[in-house]
Structure formats: structure tokens, C-alpha cells
Nucleic acid binder design. Structure first.
Lengths: 147, 147
DNA sequence: TCGTTATTTTGAGTAATTCAAAACAAGCAC
DNA sequence: GTGCTTGTTTTGAATTACTCAAAATAACGA
């Protein structure tokens, strides 16, 4: 089966097309991001290390920063949590964060057009984007803390 | 003029009514927060230090944490910035952050009811609150980077 | 005024990241 | 294929923004 090979090639292509050089750690990082919807740098590092021994945490931070800048991944920073990286990019989706366990899920916010993204008064700001974070309890935490 | 005195008394009352003991550093911190709409702990510390010599940064953090928990102030954590504290509390307002200089302004979000706060699919989460952060250019930065 | 308990100081430690210099390697030119 | 240039990564250190804990101190009800 050439599946793994093909995957690596596809990842490499994504990286190349973003205008970045293809390196082992970069392919590994992007691979990890494909498998985890929202993941922090530290966990990316721990997942990459066995795949590409010798990789440093700093490199992972650098790679994630490069990917973010190149638009390959998106970085979100929910309060009380280190930055999370996600592969889903290019659409304007939002997030729910569990106040119990910190779990994060994507939210396709607001049916139809986005009324919420037009503040009633922008205070003279020229608004570029809006970011919505919902806070609540995930199913598991709802079960754990009943009523 | 008893203005300053009266102010201090009012601040002390707010603190007491929140169920907290009134201390010099606490009154000073709350006073600083009354004058700055969005301010970070470090700047609170620098503003308080001359008013109450000997105050420690840790104390300021502790005070802000106590105030936040008591509902006297609200803590926000915009990406790429340390936590900011604001006195305006009890209403569900949102924020614009300048992508140029980091300036923050309040936004009274969404005219009428809040359609934006109802995600189309909540992924099973029991949603408690929604937080909207707008990103854009403040008037000053618009002028500095024309077109 | 006293005593209890909250608060602050003092001193140290941590998490998440950033910076910088040197070693290394991708990928284009030849 | 080989070499070169320039982008990446390693290595080692530093920084920012807090948090933790023990001892000293001070608020405020009794």
C-alpha cells in the first residue's frame, strides 16, 4: 500500500504550495495536525518526537508559526489555555470551549449571513474579522456534574 | 474638597459590598481600574506602586483575581496580549482589538436580541456564554497605514 | 483592645513561548 | 550529480505573565 507514502506526499505538497521548504519535521507536524482537530504546541511536539527523533520544541513552535503565517493552519488562543492549532482553515468558523475540561469543538456559527459580525457601533474601528468563542459544558462534563 | 475622600469611600464600599476586606492596595487598584477602561496587571501595578509604596506585583495579581471572582471586574484575554481587566461588568458587551497597536474598545454587540449567540449546531455542548472579539484597525492606525 | 482570619510580602518556581548564534539541509543553478 | 545560497533546525539561554507557599501583617467583628 502506498497510502502512507501518498499521505506524506500530499502533506509535502501542501507545504511546498504554501511557499515553504519541505522538511521532515514539517511534514510530521502537518500530519499530526491532520489527526487532531485542536492541539497545542506541546502535544504536537510529543507526537512528532517519536516520528522525527531529535526534533526540538522550539522547532515545533517555529514550524507552527510558519504554518500559521502561511495560512496552512489557524491558531486560536482561548482564555486559560495555551494556543491551539487547527488544520481547518479558510472558513470563518468559531469554537465552543468546555468550561469543565477545556475540550474544544468547532462551531459553524450563525445560520445564513452573519448578523453577529456587525457590531452596532464600531467606535471608528475598521473591522476586519470577528471571532466568537462560546463557553459551556461538553456532553461528558454535563453528565459528570448533573444539575 | 472631599472629592478624593468620597471617591475612596465609594471604592471602599464597592469592595466591602463584594464581600472583601478593604485594604489600601485594593482601593488603589480599583481606583486605577476606574480610570483605565482596559488595563493589564503590569500597568495596574505600575500605577498603584507610587500610591501605595511597597505593593508587590503578586499582590496586584491576587487582588485582580479576587476582584474578578467577586464580580467587581471582568478579565478578558485577547490573543497576543496579557490579560486585561475592566471595571465595566454585569453587561454582556464585547471588544474590538486593533490589529495594529492592540488598542481595545468596548462594543455593544448586536442590536436587539443576540442572534449571534445562538450557534447553528452546538455539538452537544450546553452553552453558557458567548464572547465576541472583533479585530480591525483603530482610527489612529488607519491613518498611519493609509490604503 | 484582642483575636481570628483574610491579605500581603517575600522568595521561589512554572508554563509557554521567544530570541540568537551556529550547524545543517532544501532545492535551484550549473 | 555537485555546489551554493538561503531557509530551517538545533542548542542554549532568556523572557513574559503568572502561580505557589510560608511567614509577616493588618481588617474588623467580638
Amino acid at each position: 500500500m502506498t497510502t502512507e507514502r501518498a499521505d506524506a506526499t500530499a502533506l509535502a505538497d501542501s507545504i511546498r504550495h504554501a511557499g515553504l521548504r519541505v522538511t521532515e519535521p514539517r511534514v510530521a507536524v502537518l500530519g499530526v495536525l491532520e489527526n487532531e482537530s485542536h492541539i497545542e504546541a506541546e502535544r504536537v511536539f510529543r507526537a512528532v518526537l517519536p516520528l522525527v527523533p531529535g526534533t526540538s520544541v522550539q522547532a515545533v513552535h517555529g514550524i507552527l508559526a510558519a504554518f500559521t503565517q502561511a495560512g496552512l493552519v489557524r491558531r486560536i488562543e482561548p482564555a486559560h489555555s495555551p494556543a491551539l492549532y487547527e488544520r481547518r482553515v479558510g472558513d470563518n468558523h468559531h469554537h465552543v470551549v468546555c468550561t469543565g475540561c477545556g475540550a474544544v469543538e468547532d462551531i459553524d456559527c450563525t445560520v445564513g449571513h452573519s448578523p453577529c459580525l456587525t457590531p452596532s457601533s464600531s467606535g471608528g474601528f475598521q473591522i476586519q474579522t470577528a471571532e466568537v468563542t462560546f463557553w459551556g459544558l461538553c456532553p461528558a462534563c454535563q453528565a459528570a456534574v448533573p444539575a
